[in-house]
């Protein structure tokens, strides 16, 4: 074994010891290249999800049924954009630029949460997204607040504070709809039927099939397994659905006294893979909308840059 290898092993051992000791890894600290790559993949995917996630909700912004709902939804979507911004900056600490991340998104190399490839078809979908999708996101993100990478953990703490408002406003929409006219109840049930299973898929593959999980757990990027988090979400959400008097579309859903958890049916992983592969109802539109915004905005960004350069040149000329 060469000197370089031994040196590397020492660094890696020190890194792992730091992680075990629950100390945060900071951008300037040494880290294994694969740790860095894993974080870039996960964090940029997270940032992209916040931004792509603005689209299905934005789809109802101009049609919100009261001015108060419109204002709440607008504030919520604005928060999501803000989350995207923090997360892009946190990811930049790993040595990748926002433009590079956009390129990866637009070329299909980087993913975003597949949940946003489903369409928002009625107003209750806005309720279901807040209640279920933000609810699932919170479950994941609370676990990430203790992630070993400092900038990610701090971004998550900041984001989690805003997320509970998102879930509350969603649940409130569902409540109003569930207690409303027959047509509104139908919309609420229809939304729950369509969003329930895709939400459970948000936690990722079963632990037995999860490609990245073991290493991420060892690095304490991940603190709880996909299945643990999914169970936690189901246990918290079932009573909320009962309170709304809405039916969760799963015949096998049942309280299990021995386990102290709800049992639930098998996820249709074929559908999951299919949507990830690009066969969801909105995959092409979502990505195209982002590409169009970016390409269509190029002249604006170039103008801002050109103007800033001119200003600087003038300042320099005035100083000379």
């Amino acid at each position: 074994m060469g000197v370089v290898d031994r040196e590397f092993e020492k660094l890696e051992a020190a890194f792992q010891a730091k992680v075990e000791a629950e100390q945060r890894i900071e951008p300037k600290d040494w880290m294994p290249e694969k740790y860095r790559q894993t974080l870039i993949r996960q964090m940029s995917q997270h940032a992209h999800s916040e931004v792509v996630g603005m689209l299905p909700e934005g789809n109802w912004l101009t049609r919100a049924p009261s001015l108060k709902r419109k204002a709440i939804l607008m504030a919520k979507i604005q928060d999501e954009g803000g989350h995207g911004l923090y997360l892009y900056s946190a990811t930049e600490t790993l040595g990748i630029s926002r433009d590079q991340m956009f390129d990866q998104l637009h070329s299909g190399k980087a993913k975003y949460s597949s949940i946003f490839n489903y369409p928002t078809l009625n107003w209750a979908d806005i309720g279901a997204i807040g209640w279920l999708v933000d609810g699932a996101a919170i479950t994941n993100q609370i676990a990430l607040c203790r992630c070993s990478y400092g900038p990610y953990a701090r971004a998550m703490i900041r984001i989690c504070k805003e997320e509970s408002f998102h879930q509350r406003q969603g649940y409130e929409i569902m409540m109003t709809m569930a207690q409303g006219t027959e047509e509104q109840r139908d919309m609420a049930q229809d939304a729950l039927n369509r969003w329930w299973w895709p939400t459970l898929m948000m936690f990722g593959p079963n632990d037995s099939n999860s490609a990245h999980s073991a290493q991420s757990m060892q690095w304490k990027i991940k603190r709880q397994s996909n299945d643990e988090l999914r169970q936690k979400f189901v246990d918290a959400t079932v009573p909320q659905a009962e309170f709304l008097n809405l039916r969760i579309p799963d015949d096998q859903l049942k309280w299990n006294e021995d386990r102290g958890h709800y049992d639930f049916g098998e996820i249709d992983w074929e559908e999951f893979r299919n949507v990830v592969k690009g066969n969801g109802l909105c995959n092409r539109e979502r990505l195209q909308a982002r590409v169009d915004a970016h390409e269509g905005g190029r002249w604006v960004r170039e103008a801002a840059l050109a103007h800033a350069r001119k200003q600087e040149a003038r300042k320099a000329a005035a100083a000379a």
């Binding site: 931004v51 603005m54 689209l55 934005g58 912004l61 101009t62 001015l67 419109k70 204002a71 607008m74 504030a75 979507i77 604005q78 954009g81 803000g82 995207g84 911004l85 892009y88 909308a289 169009d292 915004a293 269509g296 905005g297 190029r298 604006v300 960004r301």
Partner: peptide, 26 residues
């Protein structure tokens, strides 16, 4: 302005336009 949501030339501008839209709505 709400029509711009998610389609602005840069993320900062998406936030600014929703911010202004929210003020106007208020």
């Amino acid at each position: 302005l709400a029509e711009w949501c998610g389609h602005a030339p840069m993320l900062e501008e998406d936030l600014a336009l929703t911010n202004i839209g929210l003020d106007l709505l208020g």
